[in-house]
């Protein structure tokens, strides 16, 4: 075999580049030469070419114009609400943490209580508040975006 000649398998893989216009001049020449001398690969190439044409001819079903008109507004609303949710979450965490501080102030300022206990209780309470706000937010958002509302049980 001439060193410029390619195998059937190489030719069939390169055919993809030929169909998609992604081959350089040398690769294109190699494939064309192979197709000239290999009837089997030439037949395979025709099948791929037909498939390529058929997929290219498939027309995407157009979406009614009103959906495109509203599209950006929906994305913008999501962005805006995302920022709002972050602010609401931060606000809720601060208010709840402050309320807990008010309720447990005596414990935290009591010099008899060990510092490690205060840190532990503080971390536990703050963690619980953040988890509570996060789960609550998720519940509200999931209910809003629930994809399974239409499922009848």
């Amino acid at each position: 075999m001439n060193k410029n000649q390619i195998t059937c398998e190489q030719a069939q893989i390169l055919m993809m580049g030929m169909l998609d216009g992604e081959l350089n001049a040398q690769q294109k020449k190699q494939v064309e030469e192979h197709l000239d001398r290999c009837a089997n690969c030439a037949k395979t190439y025709q099948a791929f070419k037909k498939l390529k044409k058929e997929t290219s001819d498939m027309k995407l079903k157009p979406l009614p114009e009103m959906y495109w008109d509203e599209y950006w507004q929906h994305v913008y609303n999501k962005i805006e609400r995302g920022i709002a949710w972050i602010l609401v979450s931060i606000g809720a965490i601060i208010i709840l943490a402050y309320s807990v501080w008010q309720a447990m102030e005596q414990f935290f300022i009591d010099p008899m209580e060990p510092l490690s206990m205060k840190i532990g209780v503080g971390a536990l309470v703050l963690g619980t508040i953040i988890l509570f706000v996060s789960v609550l937010r998720e519940k509200i958002m999931l209910r809003k975006d629930d994809k399974y509302r239409s499922i009848k049980r």
């Binding site: 058929e54 997929t55 001819d57 498939m58 027309k59 995407l60 079903k61 239409s150 499922i151 009848k152 049980r153």
Partner: peptide, 26 residues
């Protein structure tokens, strides 16, 4: 056993303009 898809969920929307060949490819 009680879960059934609504009509909207069970019938996929068409992606391509329908003809016999594009349906086969899809």
């Amino acid at each position: 056993p009680g879960a059934v898809l609504s009509e909207r969920e069970s019938r996929p929307d068409e992606i391509f303009e329908r003809n016999e060949r594009s349906a086969a490819i899809e």
